[in-house]
Design a protein around this nucleic acid. Structure first.
Lengths: 254, 254
DNA sequence: GGAACGCTACGGCGCCGGCCGTAGCATCGG
DNA sequence: CCGATGCTACGGCCGGCGCCGTAGCGTTCC
């Protein structure tokens, strides 16, 4: 009986966290919160397809598990992920969910938009995020640094040209930039607070626009121009038009 | 009803994977497999503290979920993690398990050994892994590369001095080296196939020795000498002796 | 060839936990 | 001040699943 206590020092805690994520309703809520925004209990209930009472219970459990935080504001309670580590852990699971049963993931209209460009907690992912990563990498604007990347002098110049101060948050211990495996493309994009600042700037200047009810985002024509000008070698393919076969399968989204 | 189908394209799959990891018995098994070795069903049953029949059922589920692979050999069936992505996902959860309830993790003798030096799937973690990471980083032996780090010329020389060929696996697309957040120290150590090759070499030369029934490993005196000679700036503190308070709490392990 | 061993398949028990209905508390609007 | 709204607390229902006992198949050893 005392035997396995030795091996299982971590196991139970791991199970506790995984169990919280392992319920479909809770997983849907967490997935919806992965764009870093805060949502109300009612919105989350609707997303998960359950009654508000049930959602309330789930949210209480997620709170107790430390996966989300709440901010009461008037008669609304806004829930958001507790931190980037939670998003990272969820991404790790999504990588598995995408590769396990070989081709269980049927491509869909929504899936195509998410693969093209989306937010990953507080930074860009999908082909947009990968395009930024690859352009910076190919141009030699990234250097190895404690736990990730740092910007070289030329990289800093690019960020300044985009209206950001790459040294403003230099004292933060956490890596300014680090690779983050993209679950849809299976290639790295950039995370870290500089990536978050870039995303924030892009929304502010309307270079990238959020979609309603989805983590997918859209690179505006202006944004494409700005990024191509500031970032030599930047490419971000436009999403392919919906194929006839797909339109067949999801007529509502055609 | 059709509403939430939009948001939940990923949720259910995520929940499926998380649910598999969310059972204490399965979590213990996965945790035990995180050192990359293959274990038999009976060993895993013992580790999880359940009957072999029950373990068999759990293993079947983990198989179907694509989290583990099996290799039949004689009358034994050896189970191992399906790949490094699984270990990565589990690490992501362990980071959360370690930080959520502020100080829920009581330090233990076993915990101290794991924090000192352990394997993380196929490479070193704990202070040993971090020491290697930091020494390479501080010495300027790492350069930014597609999805992680690459070795500079001086870094390659160090690997050659340790008896490894850093270019042997250069054609592999996956990053040779990449940072991996350490759940116990909350700082990055090195993952990737070069890190795995280094760990393999260390075991082969008895620079590092495995412990029985634990993912913890021990840096031998010879290994310490070799690493300090080859890697200027390498430090790896010896584990602190067990404190009286701790010996009080776990007399069996004193 | 027989016995021991490793593992899996099946069946039944028991409980955990997700679900919603009702009810109660705070906040906002008129 | 009263109704509407957002949210949570409690209670009862019930399905899912983790657990082991028994049984059956394949492998190994003497």
């Amino acid at each position: 009986m005392a035997h396995h206590a030795v091996m299982s020092t971590q196991g139970p805690y791991l199970a506790e966290i995984a169990h919280l994520m392992g319920d479909p309703a809770r997983a849907n809520m967490l997935h919806a919160l992965m764009d870093g925004r805060a949502l109300t209990a009612k919105e989350l209930a609707w997303i998960a397809g359950i009654a508000p009472q049930t959602a309330s219970g789930h949210l209480a459990k997620l709170m107790q598990g430390g996966l989300i935080h709440v901010a009461a504001q008037g008669r609304h309670r806004y829930y958001r992920l507790a931190g980037p580590e939670v998003a990272t852990a969820l991404e790790g699971l999504m990588v598995l969910a995408n590769l396990d049963g070989t081709s269980r993931r049927l491509p869909s209209r929504v899936g195509a938009e998410l693969s093209q460009a989306r937010t990953c907690y507080d930074h860009f992912a999908g082909r947009l995020g990968i395009g930024i990563h690859d352009a910076l990498m190919a141009g030699g604007h990234l250097a190895a640094s404690e736990g990730g990347y740092a910007l070289t002098a030329s990289g800093k110049a690019i960020f300044r040209a985009l209206g950001l101060d790459p040294d403003a948050t230099a004292r933060i211990r956490r890596a300014a930039l680090r690779p983050c495996l993209d679950w849809s493309e299976r290639r790295p994009h950039l995370a870290g607070h500089l990536a978050a600042a870039l995303a924030c700037r892009c929304f502010e200047m309307d270079w990238v626009r959020r979609r309603k009810d989805s983590r997918a985002v859209i690179l505006t024509d202006e944004g494409r121009g700005v990024l191509e000008a500031a970032l030599p070698g930047f490419r971000c393919d436009a999403p392919e038009p919906v194929s006839p076969a797909l339109r067949e399968r999801e007529p509502a989204l055609a």
